[in-house]
């Protein structure tokens, strides 16, 4: 009887967006901004016969991590696949802009983004796209002052425009179950055909875009297990590292160089992809 007969509640992945923030912040420091009680909700979903949610699937909170002022935005993957629309996108952009203003006033404030998202909410199309552009612009402003950390733990993963946002962050932390990629597996299967890319072959998908592969390709900074303790420790560790001297996105030229030599005749294997990305300067 190796396990104690108590609830195993130490998984970060299994928590809702709100619980995730609570577990990440120092005890009793969480203060939710634009909470569900303010009922700032999507004006577009109801018109399309979809039941809206009072937080529009995004939770924003201020609090402290290891004593440091931090704003955290968490996307709820179980609401509309974590998609970002006008309101949910603006909530994240607004949170990041708040941190920019605080830093400009001389009050250090970092940001953590907990990403469970397929990207833009199709029902809100351009408004979602615009919101994601605002998020990206705010990340770039903020990352000069304090670290902006992206956390991709799964089960949804991080895709679409928000995968670009994650790449713009100072640091990316992933778990085994997290996935990170521009297009989701089903979209690629539709484009490339099921023979080349079978979205229901789960081990195959994770071997290409899962947390382990992304870490071993140098595209993310930390690969951790799923416990709440290790998530918090990794976030604290990266906050303490401060602003990186060079951001990953500033090294894009090296990768472009590597891609020029890529032979696409044969289907790329996870090992080949790793090698190529590491040579392209993915490593520190």
């Amino acid at each position: 009887m190796s396990n104690s007969p108590v609830v195993k509640d130490n998984s970060f992945v299994e928590q809702s967006a709100r619980q995730r923030i609570k577990r990440l912040l120092d005890k009793d420091t969480m203060r939710e901004l634009i909470s569900p009680f303010e009922r700032v909700t999507s004006p577009w979903l109801a018109k399309q016969g979809i039941v809206s949610q009072f937080d529009d699937g995004v939770v924003i909170a201020r609090g402290k991590i290891d004593g440091e002022e931090t704003v955290v935005a968490a996307i709820e993957g179980s609401f509309q696949g974590g998609s970002l629309g006008e309101v949910s996108g603006a909530k994240i952009a607004g949170a990041l802009e708040l941190a920019v203003e605080e830093n400009a006033k001389g009050n250090p404030m970092s940001a953590v983004l907990i990403l469970e998202t397929g990207g833009v909410r199709l029902q809100e199309a351009n408004l979602g796209l615009a919101a994601i552009a605002e998020i990206q612009s705010a990340i770039i402003s903020l990352r000069k002052y304090r670290p902006v950390i992206a956390l991709v733990t799964g089960p949804v993963g991080c895709f679409g425009g928000m995968s670009i946002s994650a790449a713009l962050c100072s640091y990316i932390i992933m778990t085994r179950e997290g996935r990170l990629g521009l297009n989701g597996p089903l979209v690629i299967e539709q484009e490339a055909g099921i023979v080349e890319y079978n979205a229901s072959d789960r081990p195959f998908i994770w071997s290409l875009i899962g947390g382990k592969q992304r870490f071993e390709s140098g595209l993310v900074d930390s690969y951790i297990n799923d416990s709440q303790k290790s998530v918090r420790e990794a976030v604290v560790d990266h906050l303490n590292r401060g602003v990186p001297s060079v951001h990953r996105t500033e090294k894009y030229c090296d990768l472009l160089e590597a891609f020029l030599h890529l032979d696409t005749q044969d289907q790329i294997t996870p090992e080949n992809a790793q090698q190529l990305l590491m040579e392209g300067g993915g490593h520190e």
């Binding site: 609830v7 998984s11 299994e14 799923d226």
Partner: peptide
Amino acid sequence: TRDLLAAKSIAE
């Protein structure tokens, strides 16, 4: 609530 489940995923 699901919090009462001894395991919440296949991984667990």
